[in-house]
Amino acid sequence: MQDTKAIIPEPASSLLSFVQSNTGQNISSCYQCGKCSAGCPTAYAMDIGPRQVMRAIQLGLKDEILGSSAIWLCVSCQTCSVRCPREIDIARVIESLRLLSQAEGTPPAQREIAVFHRAFLQQVRIFGRLYEVGLGIMYNLRSGHFFNNMNRLPSLFAKKKLRLIPQRTKGVSDARRIAARVKKLESELK
């Protein structure tokens, strides 16, 4: 019995049922064929691939999943979801794990990707739309990679690719109100 416990830890059922109810996906039906990992464009860079993520949910290996790079390197291309013979929406499952890891305060295994997403949404809250130059500056400052993309600036300027002035929209008040109301709702849901 001791051995079985080591393999299938206590909270297995709780993680499994959380993810299943959160996503509406029947993860227990995954029979580990590996088609998801085979088609995943970023699996090569992950510590555990999508197939292993699915198995880890079945086994309740919560810390391993929430601390994995897989949940951050998933680019939501949807290939796994479209190809799964068990019709599990794997991309959606991984998205829910990414959200869970943030809700639980797990440090992201790919810190820069999390920093990028936050810097992006910050632009939306400030301007109502993405300000690409602002995103570049904020990403560099927050990630600590101060000179990221700097070598590209001459060619971007030469081709007039960069829009230096942020776009103006009166919708910025809508964007800010929506962001504030989402925050309020999410704190109520906690």
Binding site: S76, E95, R98, V124, K170, G171, A175, R181
Partner: peptide
Amino acid sequence: DWICCGASAAHSTDHWLSLALPAH
């Protein structure tokens, strides 16, 4: 006066924001 859809940043980090921005 349209606003941003939130792109992958919203749906990677905030479920309700990822729906509310495009819903607008």
